[in-house]
Simulated scan of single mutants.
Amino acid sequence: MKANWRTAWQGPEIVIYRDEVIVDRIDAHQIERVVFVYHGSGDSPGDLLYAIVEAGDEALIFPDFTGFAGRVNFERHAFWAERGSVFWVSDRHASLPARLRRGRGFLRAGGPQYARVPRADLSALIGGWPLEGPQTWEQRKWRRIENSRPFSNSAPGQLRA
């Protein structure tokens, strides 16, 4: 039987559940950076594949099925906007070590599994990714709308036909 994962805010903490049993928790005020990895254009919540949350000396990896990108991110826009710690990167430029990915069939690598790893293990890797941000989902949406308008000024250096 497949495990049921979810995340939720409980006061200042983000709590991670597996089959309704608490497996981990993190103090939200210790979070220094959140990196959302998306597929395609990243225009819809369904495009989000996983999040990497950096806090102190650790990094937590939240796959899409944990609900971190939905519940935790979308419920507290003001919190994330104030912190300016949310970044974005396309899955074309972001890959995790094989030990952190789960399999999806015979010899095929899938997305990541939930994990808490030393931050140093991912720092160099993430440092090479072309991060977009900091910007919340709402800020990202409005920038996308602005960029889609003819003669937009929001993306200097880009010519429009």
Rank of each mutant, 00 (worst) to 15 (best):
E13F: 07
E13R: 07
I14F: 00
I16Q: 02
R18A: 07
R18Q: 15
V23H: 02
R25T: 07
I26M: 09
D27V: 05
A28G: 10
Q30E: 15
Q30S: 15
I31K: 09
I31C: 06
E32T: 15
E32C: 11
R33Y: 05
R33P: 11
V34G: 05
V34T: 04
V35R: 14
F36P: 00
F36D: 05
F36C: 12
V37T: 10
V37S: 05
Y38M: 01
Y38Q: 03
Y38G: 03
H39C: 12
H39K: 09
H39E: 10
H39M: 11
G40S: 12
S41W: 08
S44P: 10
P45L: 01
P45V: 01
G46E: 12
D47F: 03
D47I: 02
D47P: 00
L48F: 09
L48Q: 11
L49R: 13
Y50E: 09
A51F: 01
A51I: 02
I52S: 14
V53D: 02
E54V: 15
E54D: 08
G56T: 02
A59K: 07
L60S: 14
I61F: 00
F62Y: 08
P63Q: 04
F65Y: 12
G67C: 00
G67S: 03
G70W: 04
G70E: 09
G70I: 03
R71S: 03
R71D: 06
R71Y: 04
V72A: 11
N73E: 14
N73H: 13
N73L: 15
N73Q: 15
F74S: 13
F74P: 12
E75L: 07
R76V: 07
R76M: 13
H77F: 13
H77Y: 13
F79P: 05
W80R: 03
W80M: 01
R83Y: 03
S85M: 14
V86S: 09
V86Q: 09
F87S: 00
F87L: 05
V89C: 08
V89Y: 01
V89H: 12
S90W: 02
S90L: 02
S90Q: 03
S90C: 00
D91Q: 12
D91T: 12
R92K: 08
H93G: 11
H93Y: 15
H93P: 06
S95F: 15
S95M: 14
L96P: 07
P97Y: 08
R99M: 09
L100Y: 14
L100K: 08
R101C: 13
G103W: 14
G103V: 10
G103F: 15
R104T: 10
R104D: 10
F106H: 12
L107H: 11
R108G: 05
R108P: 04
A109N: 11
A109E: 09
G110T: 04
P112T: 09
P112H: 05
Y114T: 02
A115N: 03
